[in-house]
Design a protein around this nucleic acid. Sequence first.
DNA 1: AATGAATGAGTGTTCATTCAT
DNA 2: AATGAATGAACACTCATTCAT
Lengths: 192, 192, 192, 192
Amino acid sequence: MTGERNEKKAAIAATAVRLFTERGFHGTPTSLIAREAGVSNGTLFHYFPTKEELINSTYYEIKSRMAEEIGRGGDAERTNRERMRRLWRSAVLWGVDHPDEYMFVQQFCSSPFVRRLPPEEFLKDAPAVYEALTETLGTTCLKGMPVEVAFSVITSPIDAVVRSLIESGGDLDADRLIAASFEIVWRGLTEE
Amino acid sequence: MTGERNEKKAAIAATAVRLFTERGFHGTPTSLIAREAGVSNGTLFHYFPTKEELINSTYYEIKSRMAEEIGRGGDAERTNRERMRRLWRSAVLWGVDHPDEYMFVQQFCSSPFVRRLPPEEFLKDAPAVYEALTETLGTTCLKGMPVEVAFSVITSPIDAVVRSLIESGGDLDADRLIAASFEIVWRGLTEE
Amino acid sequence: MTGERNEKKAAIAATAVRLFTERGFHGTPTSLIAREAGVSNGTLFHYFPTKEELINSTYYEIKSRMAEEIGRGGDAERTNRERMRRLWRSAVLWGVDHPDEYMFVQQFCSSPFVRRLPPEEFLKDAPAVYEALTETLGTTCLKGMPVEVAFSVITSPIDAVVRSLIESGGDLDADRLIAASFEIVWRGLTEE
Amino acid sequence: MTGERNEKKAAIAATAVRLFTERGFHGTPTSLIAREAGVSNGTLFHYFPTKEELINSTYYEIKSRMAEEIGRGGDAERTNRERMRRLWRSAVLWGVDHPDEYMFVQQFCSSPFVRRLPPEEFLKDAPAVYEALTETLGTTCLKGMPVEVAFSVITSPIDAVVRSLIESGGDLDADRLIAASFEIVWRGLTEE
DNA sequence: AATGAATGAGTGTTCATTCAT
DNA sequence: AATGAATGAACACTCATTCAT
């Protein structure tokens, strides 16, 4: 009744993350989630009034964890370039290390019924990224664009890299691909 | 057996494109497709033995059209840079002009049950893109990487730009965003 | 494919009448109706898109039968009084002979979700009643009231009589109660 | 253990009356009743071990109030006819003024699972009605019938009148309809 | 080839009721 | 007495797929 309060809720959420990730939204009945979480069907709906709400919760849960883990330790670097480089690398590696969760987030973002959601607040969760980015943007040809737009444009190759690495199953030289992709974007942004 | 052969099949496919695009895979029952295509439920399954096969067909249909329309007229430009620039612009504008179909393709690619499909063959459908790209790649830091990988890394900002434009609802300066995003990548690739 | 066309639909409807009558709307799951009708669950919804529509159909089915059976042979009598007397008697006896169906109709009429239905068209189904009634009304203190209103006011004791007889389980003198109730209303209507 | 004893029980009962009245038995979950009554789910079942018992209580509650309000002031009139007339009028007006509660009582009486209840004791709650009635009955053609039977037969037009008035939404001349319906029954009972 | 009636497993969700605290 | 988390059997309804005609 004190510390472990949301034990069952947490179990449901964790199981949902795993199953959605393995089988997609539509491939995962709520009844399966409940069973694998060790609770009754009704309990799931006690905590998440709708399957949709469960999906949303799951999404935010993963995204927060992702942002937090990627940003962690990013302040240590000296130059702005080094900070960005490190974040770039962390982001790719997180995706490669958590392929299911990574694809789940992508799946969620491309899902038709999600487009009505409030705009992404990814940057709010990752202050290190935000700062490194704004410091960089001012001098580039993206000057004046909304930060989120610039952010998504600049970081989009990360997604391509992650997917390539996941799909290649280890045949690609990850370090070189990460470095090369970063170089392209960084030079494109900063070179005269 | 020759002329009107695929009349009904074509009607089904066309209707499927439209409905999947408007409502997503799971929001579109096969019965609805059949009804709107003006054929019986059974006829649909006569031509497409499975809903999944219908989805795949639909996907390839849209993707081919997209590739063809984007690549059209791309050979006219003189320099390689101009060709790439034009393709970049065409790709973004196609996405902006066909938001539903664009998102459908994205949705498809992120769908879990699709990951087993044969690897993307996008480049096969767009020879102009393929040639412009290989000509460029040789001198960059991506030299030696598989073409598809290089391709997806380089073109990924297009996706970000399209999404930003779609979501902004017209408030963004499309021309500037297209130009800037291309500049970044191109300079990143070619600058010393 | 010709005469026996709605065989399954008819089976569903008949079973629904029986079960609703025995167990009430809410006590009768659609799955039970389907099973007892010897069809699949889906077939039920093929013919009646909604449980509510099935209930409505059932109701109209019973009501039509009731009206038809009550009105049958009513034209034979000579005087208006005799026609009314006979109808009165037939109505009561129908209720006593079909207590379940009778109570089902009552249950339906008192059901909260039914009040939105189009106004009763009972009279349309029972032309003999309608004629006998209008002939009588003109000279009474109900002159000028809408026929349906007059009709429901005048015939309401029938319901009370039926219920009393059903509940008494045979201890009451049915003939005397029918006759007395009719006398009251008839005298009330026609006496100076 | 004395003063505030039934505070919560009373709150539950009152809320149940309101909600059943507004939404019907089946449209009202016990959880909603508990929430709106400001008590916990479990408390409801502490006082009313079953939803059915709660429904019964509610019914008796409404019916008592109805009988009490209708009978109030009924003794003031001098003649028996005047007493009956006044009661008739009060009954109709109560129904018109409390359409939800009125329909609730009707719904309850027609509900299949209610037929097992002990016989109506309406008259016990309305001594004024009882007395006026027995005084009248002795001289009529209903002489010798059980009082409840006579009562329900005689008063049944009240129900028809109330329904007509509720459904007409104010388009009917209520006073005339009340008067006419009473006249019919009274004359029918007393005329030679 | 074409139909569309028929199927029945499966889905999200509800809700009366129980019980540990 | 009071709570409210937990239960799990039900339920209305959907839909990909089959098959007799």
